[in-house]
């Protein structure tokens, strides 16, 4: 069985109201595929965090999710402005979110940490002024 896309979505910058929509949809799809509850939860949380990252930090982007016989692959891609300092961004509690976003309960600096924690493989392609492409793999 080759890789198959099961979710394709466009996410707008600042669209907080719709945050979580894709992760909920994905949870349902994975359940239909018989993915175990534990793995499903990891994929769902990773997707939610990546979804929120696009909403909070980027100029907009999208998330595509692929399934292979051994893994679920979540690919989040946005059109910029890129992560300034990736090493810092991966530190727990580090966030560049402004007060307004923090007041909404986001931007606690745990987003990418959670993604790293719940993924089996993580690849981040970014840089100042660049598009960001994050690929998180969770093994089945």
């Amino acid at each position: 069985m080759k890789e198959q896309m099961i979710l394709k979505s466009r996410i707008e910058k600042g669209d907080f109201n719709r945050g979580g929509e894709n992760s909920s949809k994905l949870k349902e799809l994975l359940r239909k595929l018989g993915v175990t509850a534990d793995i499903n939860r990891r994929v769902t949380i990773v997707t939610y965090e990546l979804e929120m990252n696009i909403i909070i930090h980027s100029d907009g982007g999208g998330i595509n999710v692929y399934v292979t016989p051994d893994a679920v692959k979540v690919v989040a891609e946005d059109s910029g402005p890129g992560i300034e300092d990736l090493e810092k961004a991966l530190q727990p509690g580090y966030s560049t979110a402004n007060d307004e976003i923090r007041n909404m309960g986001f931007g606690a600096g745990m987003g990418l940490n959670n993604v790293e924690y719940f993924s089996d493989e993580l690849e981040i392609d970014t840089g100042p002024g660049k598009r960001t492409r994050i690929t998180a793999v969770i093994n089945l």
Binding site: M1, Q4, I6, L29, R31, K32, L33, G34, A37, P69
Partner: peptide, 22 residues
Amino acid sequence: QQIQIGKLDNDLEKAMEKLAEL
């Protein structure tokens, strides 16, 4: 214990086909 429901097929490959069909 979990009560498993909603699984399209026990075989992942077949479940994927059914998902596409869905």
